[in-house]
Design a protein around this nucleic acid. Structure first.
Length: 800
RNA sequence: GCGCCUGUGAUGGAAUUGGCAGACAUGCGAGAUUUAGGUUCUCGUGUCGAGAGACGUGUGGGUUCGAGUCCCUUCAGGCGCACCA
């Protein structure tokens, strides 16, 4: 009888649901385990095979943990606010709410089809007012604590999405989502002070079990630099403050550069002899997109500010001041002290503009190129620093600056505050109103959620105003503070708002009094294992760590870090080894795979495909291998003998498989776990097996391929279900084989093997090896100088 | 440019962490069962060689009794950041 995967899969999915096997219990004496996948954005194209990889992996973990006796929380929900839905709604004239409803229904059926053991009773959606009421609540808390502020500043503007982007959303100068050109636009935006948490976001990584590349990437993104802030006086009377990592090179400062947007430029309008030229340069810099600005970075450009000079505080020399777009307005103070001898960019600029280049650290030829080593070298031409090593010079000059009141040691971060407003419809409304008398006033908590109103048109505007701004009835309101006329904030929150705290809501998803009860937060605690994409490392993962720390600081959550462990999966590529995309026509639809081969085959293949952490190309041919395996499992269940004992011949292999599968799951080596299960299946198929053998085998396989295991379990007439078994105990004594094959080497070269009892000692093993005919031939040909013995592994004869 | 990672059969990938390279699977070849096969089963499959054997983990070197694994060199590919002062 052939295995009918369709019948079996729908049958067992129904039974699991009826028995509520995967419900997490908030009042349990068991140890808790919180396994989390990144909740999907329910897009119109449906679930992607790329989703199946992390979801299956964490489903395996969740199922295994339940079998190990844990009370497991393995939830799912929808990160449903966002631009693609809104754009689809605009194009097809369907309300975004409706688009979301349809997409969620499709995703739900696809996830159920794959047999994932989610606790569906805890399903959440970020677009649900009962959910976003708490997103808004957190925002109000941020506002209350001064961590949300409105600022007018140059922001990243995606010309295609017509929306402001956070720095994290700009990738290589273009929009992370659509690839559209990003330009600088001066706009007034709500900002979140993530920079206030920069140091803690770095420091607390140390205590976390995150894969190293995530930690590194977050640290690089936050970009901590240490150095000093130094103030330079100018002939105009104003001071220029700069941040530098090389205060030791202060004697080598031969000019200064302001970013084109620097406030002093406008302030000096009247005294600059070439203001029109300066203004022209600034206008050009503003017009350039980020991409152009970096592309044109090869050749340095700039204009000297004629009529003003700065003074080098140590040499007393008057030095020129330039503006140039190689100095960023958004980093440090937006101004630099230029040391052409020891910074390559400054060197190029100095060469082009004919500024003197002074060597202050020995080690290179500064007329040929900048000597940029910041650790080694001896100071020269540097007055009281002469003869000091660079690190000592840094300390000395910093102390000197502090003493003279000219500067002080300083730390700088690349991380910038989070631009938190979007000029689009389909997002959480910001619960603030503006009153001419009272300024920005938060809505009282009792008025949350502030419901997103239904509008006629979702079209974004070219003016950079949110579509909500046209809803005059909604916009015009009264001030909660003074009762006077006021208007609402019409921008909405970014996509990343709802996902910054969703894992907390799962703990207590129906709570109407708080985002989750204190008891639930205490019980479930940190997410034990969170797997998700590397692409979220400096977006969602960083943002949610920030929000969580804030919630910790105001006493809402009991831990300062949300996730104890973070792992990441590689991408599933198309058959052509290219990223799957509609335009390439290489997209694999999970529905087709499940239709043709079944969910278990899909689950097994996506885990067997290769190293979990690396990208892997899909192979429609290789899927069959997993289907054959599923069929063979079913066939074994038909063939197994009636005995409930474990076959002695299989015992050692079974125990080694228990160890291998159990350990491999914990370290993301699902591919080798499956390989070892295949090996066991092959062995049992060849040598025969009992119901007792199958019992262990099906239990081990059950997290990977739960349907065929429960079906086979039932066919064998076993009690209960494979899904509900206790995870098998590994017995080292039983795993040990009675005999081992020892490799024999002659002068380090493998020649033959000999089989000896597993506990065979050195003398006996060497003796046995010596008696192997082939070995004797080599031994007779020379003198034995040395014998190397590795227990249970090899014997190496060194012969001369 | 800086940081991180990866190079193993025709393909995806294993290798007990320094000890029989290529597990497991795909593909391919031969055979069997079958009216038929996108079924199932058996055998074979790193390269050269009839064979004994020799060679073989991107390149070149080193450490070691022994290196895919450690060290140095170099090349190739991927990812992240990118004028970050």
């Amino acid at each position: 009888m052939k295995y009918d995967f369709k019948a079996a899969e729908s049958k067992w999915q129904r039974i699991w649901e009826e028995k509520q096997l995967f419900r997490a219990d908030n009042n349990s004496d068991k140890k808790k385990y919180y396994a989390l996948v990144e909740f999907p954005y329910p897009s119109g194209v449906g679930l992607h095979v790329g989703h199946a990889r992390p979801y299956t992996a964490m489903d395996i973990v969740a199922r295994k943990r339940r079998m190990q006796g844990y009370n497991v929380l393995f939830p799912i929900g929808w990160d449903a606010f966002g631009l693609p839905t809104e754009n689809y709604a605009i194009k097809n004239h369907i309300p975004p709410k409706e688009v979301t409803r349809v997409n969620v229904a499709q995703f739900t059926s696809q996830l159920r089809m794959l047999g994932y053991s989610f606790d569906w009773s805890r399903e959440i959606s970020t677009t649900d007012p009962e959910y976003y009421r708490w997103t808004q609540w957190i925002f109000l808390k941020l506002f209350e604590k001064g961590l949300a502020y409105k600022a007018r500043m140059p922001v990243n503007w995606c010309t295609s999405c017509k929306v402001v982007l956070a720095n994290e959303e700009v990738v290589e100068g273009v929009c992370e989502r659509c690839g559209g050109a990003v330009v600088r636009k001066e706009k007034s935006q709500w900002m979140l002070k993530i920079t206030e948490y920069a140091q803690r976001l770095i420091d607390d990584l140390d205590g976390l079990d995150f894969i190293e590349r995530v930690k590194i990437q977050q640290k690089n993104w936050i970009g901590r630099s240490t150095g000093a802030n130094v103030r330079f006086s100018t002939t105009a009377g104003d001071e220029i403050e700069v941040f530098t990592t090389r205060p030791d090179t202060l004697f080598g400062v031969t000019y200064m550069v302001l970013s084109p947007e620097h406030a002093l430029v406008e302030r000096w309008k009247e005294i600059l002899k070439n203001y029109p030229q300066v203004a022209e340069y600034r206008a050009q810099a503003e017009k350039k997109s980020d991409l152009e600005r970096t592309e044109l970075s090869k050749e340095k450009t700039g204009v000297e500010l004629l009529g003003v000079r700065a003074v080098n505080p140590v040499t007393g020399a008057e030095i020129p001041i330039f503006i140039s777009d190689y100095v960023l307005s958004t980093y440090g103070t937006g101004a630099i002290m230029a040391v052409p001898g020891h910074d390559q960019r400054d060197w190029e600029f100095a060469k082009k503009f004919g500024v003197p280049i002074v060597e202050v650290v020995m080690g290179g030829d500064v007329q040929q190129e900048a000597y940029t080593d910041s650790e080694t070298g001896v100071m020269v031409n540097s007055g009281f620093l002469d003869g000091l090593e660079v690190p000592d010079a840094k300390k000395r000059i910093t102390a000197w600056l502090e003493e003279k009141g000219l500067g002080r040691a300083a730390v700088n971060y690349k991380l910038r505050d989070w631009v938190f407003t979007r000029q689009r419809y389909w997002g959480e409304p910001i619960p603030l109103v503006y009153c001419d008398k009272c300024g920005w006033v938060p809505l009282p908590e009792s008025e949350l959620p502030l419901i997103l109103p239904e509008v006629e048109s979702y079209e974004p505007t070219d003016t950079g105003e949110s579509p909500l701004s046209t809803m005059t009835d909604w916009v015009h309101t009264t001030c909660p503070h003074c009762g006077g006329e006021a208007h609402r904030e019409t921008d909405t929150m970014p996509q990343w708002a709802g996902s910054s705290w969703y894992f907390l809501r799962y703990m207590d998803p129906h709570n109407t009094q708080a985002l989750a009860s204190k008891e639930a937060l205490d019980y479930w605690g940190q997410v034990d294992w969170y797997n998700g994409g590397m692409e979220h490392t400096t977006l969602h993962l960083l943002y949610s760590r920030f929000w969580h720390k804030f919630l910790y600081d105001i006493g809402v959550v009991p831990y300062s870090e949300p996730y104890a462990r973070r792992t990441s999966h590689g991408m599933i590529l198309g058959e052509d080894k290219q990223k799957m995309s509609k335009s390439r026509g290489n997209v694999v639809n999970p529905n087709d795979v499940v239709e043709q081969y079944g969910a278990d085959t899909m689950r097994l293949y996506i885990m067997f495909i290769g190293d979990f952490e690396k990208a892997a190309p899909w192979s429609s041919a290789a899927v069959k291998g997993c289907q054959r395996f599923v069929d063979r499992v079913w066939a074994l269940a038909q063939q197994a003998s009636d005995s409930d004992y474990v076959t002695p011949q299989h015992e050692a292999l079974i125990h080694r498989t228990i160890k291998k599968v159990g350990e491999d799951i914990e370290v993301l080596k699902f591919n080798t776990a499956i390989a070892s299960l295949m090996t066991l299946a092959n062995e049992m198929a060849e040598k025969g097996c009992t119901r007792g053998d199958m019992k262990v085998f099906l239990t081990l396989l059950s997290p990977f391929a739960p349907h065929v295991c429960d079906e086979s379990w039932e066919a064998l007439g076993l009690e209960g279900m494979a899904s509900c078994q206790a995870w098998p105990e590994y017995d080292e004594a039983k795993a040990r084989p009675e005999e081992v094959e020892i490799a024999i080497q002659i002068n380090g070269k493998f020649r033959d093997t000999v089989t000896v009892p597993a506990d065979c000692g050195q003398d006996e093993t060497v003796e046995a090896a010596r008696n192997v005919p082939k070995v004797q031939r080599y031994l007779e040909g020379g003198t034995l100088v040395k014998t190397i013995f590795v227990k249970g592994r090899l014997v190496n004869f060194i012969v001369k």
